[in-house]
Design a protein around this nucleic acid. Sequence first.
DNA 1: TTTGTATAGTGTCTTTATTACACTAAGTAA
DNA 2: TTACTTAGTGTAATAAAGACACTATACAAA
Lengths: 252, 252
Amino acid sequence: MNRAYNHTKNKGLNPNISVDCVIFGFDFEKLNVVTIRRGTGNGSELMRTALPGDLIYDNENLDMAAERVLEELTGLKDVYLEQVGAFGDPNRVRNKKDEKWLKSIREQPEARVVTIAYYSLLPMEKCQLLASSFAKSVQWEAVADIKDLAFDHLEILKTSLDKLKNKLAHQPVGVNLLPEKFTLGQLQKMYETILDKKIDKRNFRRKIQKLDILTLLDEKQTGVPHKPSHYVKFNDKKYRELSETGFDNFGF
Amino acid sequence: MNRAYNHTKNKGLNPNISVDCVIFGFDFEKLNVVTIRRGTGNGSELMRTALPGDLIYDNENLDMAAERVLEELTGLKDVYLEQVGAFGDPNRVRNKKDEKWLKSIREQPEARVVTIAYYSLLPMEKCQLLASSFAKSVQWEAVADIKDLAFDHLEILKTSLDKLKNKLAHQPVGVNLLPEKFTLGQLQKMYETILDKKIDKRNFRRKIQKLDILTLLDEKQTGVPHKPSHYVKFNDKKYRELSETGFDNFGF
DNA sequence: TTTGTATAGTGTCTTTATTACACTAAGTAA
DNA sequence: TTACTTAGTGTAATAAAGACACTATACAAA
């Protein structure tokens, strides 16, 4: 049975497709995520906190759309980026405020939206958040403090965090959250924060050092009120070698 | 900066959204996948092999769309289903044959398509493949034999297989590919086939039995030209208990 | 200048998991 | 009766994970 797109089952409007970005950053204390505030007016009753995102352009693929949003917001290119998946419940616009806001910016507010979610990991200190075409205000917010977001963005955040935890437990992707030079203590804190569990210091060091992806630098911390730690840096080359074999025997 | 959807960057056509399903089945010998043949005429030069899929309806969420395709094709509901991700390269229609075929069925053949891929695991023997609105012919094909598929479906298949391997290595989802009663030998063969490696029989049994998700049945195989094996069945309740703790110490 | 405090840095022992390995049992087919 | 095929079972060696405590060194405060 040959058939054309069955418009009796649809409103005659094709859906919109957007990307939303969960941008993670680590400040050596807690995990943060970039949120934006947007709304129809300046009254705070119409403002909503959301994840940054945008509709995709015709001529770009999905990854490119995410990279574009990311660069416009942070000024950074070539950051660690991972697709989380597609979210497209037709009832995702449940909140009245979301509805109102949507009407103000979309030509076809009644068309459904499917969004492709990405998460990215970047070093916060490299990153200057910029207000952009899709966001009046942009800020870092502690993931632990976020209780509500527009649309289904809270679900997207939770799913992204789960994926990140799972990835981090099997591959050392967390180095993307740290500056070029960092200490083993900072690295461990990052693992503990994201995986939400204490790790024994000596066992942690043994495991990381066996991976052999860190280079010890001569330089030490300064200005800390305790014994200064040596800095280490991440060794890209070794990491890529390991990537090929899939980190078979690594995990926290 | 408030803004409406910027149509200067687009053709004025919203994209189409489809789901594509990678339906895996295991015949105790090899891993198979459901493919469909479709095309503009009966001439084989215009026929293309593809993954089954369909455009989504306005009133269904993405999972529902995948379930609908799956049921229409196999007659089965409530099968194991996992989202793989979104694929949406604007150049995914590279092949001339794909282009021609698209023109014949879409009202807006020039609109881009983003597809959400799913994979599902089901027991082949429960499944009667049915020709459907989206497929003139439907058949099982050995995954290992598939060298070419329409659009970006080969990439989707590869990604799905990778995800399946990864999942299977950490959670015993493979039981969804087997009949209700099966032998440990069949279970092992399934692991070996999908993970593409030999596993030691005794070590395999030890590991599986420690999971404690299988119930030994009194019934034995009949008609086999060797010592008959006891059948076992999968224990759903124990599996769900384990799922909560995340199969921390399980892996092949 | 002494004391307090905070993190750095290091080794061993125990427990648990992984790997490697070989024979007998019980069916069918020839 | 024999050949063939898969079922079913245990142990020893090696590797990984987990638990655990002290000294070193910087700064801050008294």
